[in-house]
Design a protein around this nucleic acid. Sequence first.
DNA 1: CATGAATGAGTCTTCATTCAT
DNA 2: CATGAATGAAGACTCATTCAT
Lengths: 189, 189, 189, 189
Amino acid sequence: MIALGKRLKILDGALAVFEAKGFHAAAVPEIAAASSVAVGTIYRHFPTKEALGEALLAAWQERFNADVLAPYPATATPRAALRLTWRRMAGFARSFPAAQRFLDLHHHASYAGPASAAAEAALHQGMRELADWGRRQGVMKPLPPEALTALLRGSLAGLARYAAVAGVIPQTLIDDMEDCLWNAVATRT
Amino acid sequence: MIALGKRLKILDGALAVFEAKGFHAAAVPEIAAASSVAVGTIYRHFPTKEALGEALLAAWQERFNADVLAPYPATATPRAALRLTWRRMAGFARSFPAAQRFLDLHHHASYAGPASAAAEAALHQGMRELADWGRRQGVMKPLPPEALTALLRGSLAGLARYAAVAGVIPQTLIDDMEDCLWNAVATRT
Amino acid sequence: MIALGKRLKILDGALAVFEAKGFHAAAVPEIAAASSVAVGTIYRHFPTKEALGEALLAAWQERFNADVLAPYPATATPRAALRLTWRRMAGFARSFPAAQRFLDLHHHASYAGPASAAAEAALHQGMRELADWGRRQGVMKPLPPEALTALLRGSLAGLARYAAVAGVIPQTLIDDMEDCLWNAVATRT
Amino acid sequence: MIALGKRLKILDGALAVFEAKGFHAAAVPEIAAASSVAVGTIYRHFPTKEALGEALLAAWQERFNADVLAPYPATATPRAALRLTWRRMAGFARSFPAAQRFLDLHHHASYAGPASAAAEAALHQGMRELADWGRRQGVMKPLPPEALTALLRGSLAGLARYAAVAGVIPQTLIDDMEDCLWNAVATRT
DNA sequence: CATGAATGAGTCTTCATTCAT
DNA sequence: CATGAATGAAGACTCATTCAT
């Protein structure tokens, strides 16, 4: 019986090395060392290095989605929903800074596969629901979901890049951005 | 004397290949082919592949800075200056989408050298002057220049990523973002 | 005590895979699958893959010898003995085509060990007795046993190679060859 | 310009190593050493190790065909033609013993490609012409060309295997075999 | 100066072998 | 005894770099 713990160890080691050096500069033996696992063991769990990259990308995209697209409180308004979404994204970036940088830099990787595309689509779908809701209520401009995603994710990436230098994202900056992002998508009042 | 035309052809070919496949996945013979130049010729202009990457990164960072940090009109306010800065950044992303993606994805590359760091510092310095100016005038919050850079550049990257899917950045989105970014850095009124 | 049935299953599976792909291209897990046995079980019966190859080679050589070198009828002449020998060889090739091809292609294998050499020597010894007998009777030329073996085995290999294409060795061809081989070794009359 | 000499050196080195150890047991660096060439150079001339094996097989098959299927003298009878064919085959085996063993052991290799099949077909075609000629003259039995090829090549392989032990094929054995082979294919008189 | 054939260090991947269950 | 997950040494192949033309 394959120990599932090994798979997780490998994914963790791969995240560290891919994030630090990029996919192609990461040597499989190095990933093995970072995972405290033998080289051959990696190939028992993933058929190729590309498949490992694909699985890692999909796993973190799904985790990101699970965090960000969790249900809103029943009483939430679109404005509150956007705020919550943004805070969840920032929370993810704070909790998993390496994963956040990995997602920022590898989203267009050649090894992004169907699972990755599905996760991207699920995220867009969540954004679409939010945008449609806001539009129906007359508080948000009509907006393609990709635009909303790009806006939120781009700002988040900027903050994460700042954090890589500053060490941490100041909470005030997150809060200010929140207000700012709402203004970008809200109908003028 | 080395023909400068070849150097430019090589840098152009390298941008195309690096942007499409990443630094390590780009083979020097492939860059040579994309540049319509022989392999050996590349080594006549750049001592190593890393040096080529470093030169390419620095060249585009400098071009970005030259565009973005050009002098403001004498009559500009901080608000107008920020608007202009943002529009210049968006203009760069529109004019050189490949270069924009290259800068977004390779900023933390292992081959980023001193020239690259100097360009980054120059950009921060420009941002610092803008932030200090706005703070002295009482219209902007005190802000580390890296935060300002991250905010602008992150949003730009988000839009560029959207453009990679949608094909073009809608001008209205750029204008809305401008307003939004000002709100993020302006003192509350 | 080790179940002998497993040993035979492994030898059968190994014959199939070695014959189809060659010794080095045959992976032990593949042999295990072809034998319906776990990998570890193979190593319980044979210390190494080489030892398995050696045992397989020796086993079939011994089987070949047992078939071919069986006693002749008391009334046989050298001519009849050669005919019988040849028919026994052809019978072996018909009954065990995979083993025949395996023996043809692996006789000089690096893993051919002492048992294999002993079997080869036994075959030569049988040929020597036949050649000496014929020479003493004045009906056969003086002939090194290796030459007689090579002649018979080479012709057999040629027919087996034909059978691999045609599906079966025509009996008339076997009979004609018999005559022909006698002429090659008989004293001119 | 690629030096053609290198290609030949590689083919020679590969013949030596493949013949001695078999295709899969032959390591590419070993072939490179035997060819006095760097590993990478092999891959400049042959895309894969399999392609090298294929080219080597085809080259020697074609050489074999060129030697064996050369035109017969105008005055030749079928009997003389068969004699000449057999002597040419034996001459090939004497001149290129390593190539002969290589052809004997690798003919059914997984890497035998179209060129190899074409050469095999050409040889069969030559045999067909000989067999048809003899049949039309009433001196040879009707015989599929594959059977004729198998007969000649099998006997040759047997002699070559003997030579690997004895060092050389005795000329008398070659001559005796010649007579013997004619008897196998001639109509009974 | 430009060229591209040659080089060999380094990469991904396989597979014989081991050993805890 | 049987099993098959884990191991890591070894192999095929790539590609940055050199240098003779």
